[in-house]
Amino acid sequence: SKDTIRINGIDIDVKDLHEEWKRLVEEALKRGDEELAIELLERALKE
């Protein structure tokens, strides 16, 4: 798994994120759902 995830052309540092969150965000991006990916990231970062 990578340490960054690219959303809207912005590389976001996710190395401190739990693997499960990372996977969910990557799944959302694979489906092209950037809005969901951002929402998941925000939730993950609050934890």
Results as ranks from 00 to 15, higher is better:
Glu20His: 13
Leu41Pro: 00
Val25Trp: 03
Ile38Ser: 10
Lys15Gly: 13
Leu41Lys: 00
Val14Arg: 02
Leu29Ser: 02
Trp21Val: 15
Ile10Cys: 04
Glu19Gly: 08
Lys2Thr: 14
Leu40Arg: 02
Glu34Ser: 12
Lys46Thr: 11
Glu19Ala: 11
Asp33Ala: 06
Lys2Phe: 14
Leu41Trp: 06
Glu20Cys: 15
Ile12Glu: 01
Glu42Phe: 05
Lys46Ala: 14
Lys30Asn: 13
His18Ile: 08
Ile7Tyr: 04
Gly9Ser: 03
Asp3Trp: 00
Val14Thr: 06
Lys2His: 13
Leu40Thr: 04
Asp11Arg: 03
Ala44Lys: 02
Arg43Asp: 06
Leu29Val: 09
Asp13Lys: 05
Glu27Val: 04
Glu39Ala: 14
Gly32Ala: 04
Ala28Asn: 00
Asp33Tyr: 06
Ile7Ala: 02
Arg31Leu: 11
Arg43Phe: 13
Glu39Trp: 09
Glu35Gln: 14
Ala37Val: 06
Val14Asp: 01
Ile12His: 14
Glu27Gly: 06
Ile7Trp: 04
Val25Met: 11
Leu36Val: 07
Ile5Phe: 06
Asp3His: 06
Ala28Leu: 06
Glu47Met: 07
Arg23Val: 10
Glu39Ser: 13
Arg6Pro: 04
Leu36Asn: 05
Lys46Val: 09
His18Leu: 12
Arg31Lys: 12
Lys2Asp: 12
Asp16Ala: 09
Ile7Asp: 02
Lys22Tyr: 11
Lys2Ala: 15
Asp3Gly: 05
Glu34Gln: 13
Asp13Glu: 07
Lys22Gly: 05
Val14Trp: 11
Lys46Ser: 14
Val25Pro: 00
Ala44Tyr: 13
Asp13Thr: 07
Gly32Asp: 05
Glu42Trp: 04
Leu45Phe: 15
Gly32Thr: 01
Asp13Asn: 14
Arg31Phe: 10
Leu40Gln: 01
Arg6Lys: 14
Ile38Trp: 15
Asp33Lys: 05
Glu34Leu: 10
Leu45Trp: 14
Ile12Asn: 02
Gly32Phe: 05
Gly9Ala: 02
Ala44Gln: 03
Ile5Met: 05
Ala44Val: 05
Thr4Asp: 03
His18Ala: 15
Leu24Ile: 07
Thr4Phe: 10
Asp16Gly: 15
Leu24His: 04
Val14Gln: 02
Gly32Ser: 02
Asp11His: 05
Arg23Cys: 04
Glu39Val: 13
Asp16Arg: 07
Ile5Ala: 01
Asp11Ser: 06
Val25Gln: 00
His18Asp: 14
Asp3Ile: 05
Lys15Trp: 06
Lys46Asp: 10
Leu40Pro: 00
Glu34Asp: 10
Gly9Thr: 01
Glu20Val: 13
Leu29Gly: 00
Lys30Ser: 15
Glu20Trp: 10
Leu36Gln: 11
Glu47Leu: 08
Lys15Pro: 04
Trp21Asn: 04
Asp16Glu: 11
Glu26Gly: 09
Asp16Thr: 10
Ile5Gly: 01
Asp3Phe: 01
Glu20Asp: 13
Glu19Asn: 09
Glu19Phe: 11
Ile5Gln: 01
Trp21Arg: 02
Glu26Val: 15
Ile10Asp: 04
Glu39Pro: 00
Lys30Ala: 15
Leu45Arg: 13
Ile12Gln: 03
Leu41Cys: 02
His18Val: 08
Ala44His: 05
Asn8Ala: 07
Ile12Tyr: 15
Arg23Asp: 06
Arg6Tyr: 08
Ser1Gln: 11
Asn8Asp: 08
Glu19Tyr: 12
Gly9Glu: 04
Ala37Ile: 04
Glu35Asn: 14
Ala28Gly: 00
Val25His: 00
Thr4Gly: 02
Ser1Trp: 12
Ile10Asn: 08
Lys22Trp: 10
Asp11Asn: 06
Glu42Gly: 06
Gly9Asn: 05
Leu41Asp: 00
Lys30His: 12
Leu36Thr: 08
Ala37Gln: 00
Glu34Ala: 10
Arg6Glu: 06
Asn8Gly: 10
Gly9Arg: 02
Asn8Phe: 04
Val14Tyr: 06
Glu39Met: 14
Glu20Thr: 14
Ile12Asp: 00
